[in-house]
Simulated scan of single mutants.
Amino acid sequence: MPDNAVIELPERSIDRFFKESLHLIEFAILYILIINAFLVNGRLTKGAHLTAALIACFYGFVDEIHQAFVPSRSATAIDAVKDVIGVLVCYYIVQASYFTHPRRRVGQWMEHFATWIRP
């Protein structure tokens, strides 16, 4: 769909930039949700961490392939790259704050979240 199909901001370049950057955010959120599922169930290990990143990246590629077959949608390699970059940024944050330096604020938030959710 064109970037102005649903809503259009007054400045077209800002509108397109904002909507294209959502690729980074949506697959980062997918990765975070998968990580939280492992974390809450007490199964967040380095292997699970890598698996979550691979699943989110793979889903980004599958989404782009799917869009190639949907009328009025477009599939581009740069969109797949943006999907992977979003996942990799969150992967690095989790790696640094939960596994490498668990006393950092993000790692502490993750632990508090896990203890809050667990029965």
Rank of each mutant, 00 (worst) to 15 (best):
M1K: 13
M1I: 14
P2E: 12
N4W: 03
A5L: 02
I7K: 08
P10V: 02
R12Y: 04
R12A: 14
S13I: 05
S13H: 11
D15H: 05
D15K: 09
R16Y: 11
F17D: 13
F17C: 14
F17K: 14
F18H: 09
A28Y: 03
Y31H: 15
L33N: 11
I34A: 03
I34Q: 01
I34Y: 01
A37D: 08
F38I: 10
L39K: 06
H49G: 01
L50Q: 08
T51G: 14
C57I: 14
F61C: 03
V62N: 04
E64N: 13
E64I: 04
H66A: 06
H66C: 06
P71V: 06
S72E: 14
R73I: 07
A75E: 03
A77G: 14
A77W: 15
D83G: 03
V84D: 02
G86M: 08
G86P: 11
V94F: 05
V94M: 01
Q95E: 13
Q95M: 07
A96L: 01
S97C: 15
Y98P: 01
F99K: 04
F99H: 10
F99Y: 11
T100V: 11
T100S: 07
H101R: 15
E111D: 09
F113E: 03
W116L: 04
R118L: 00
P119T: 05
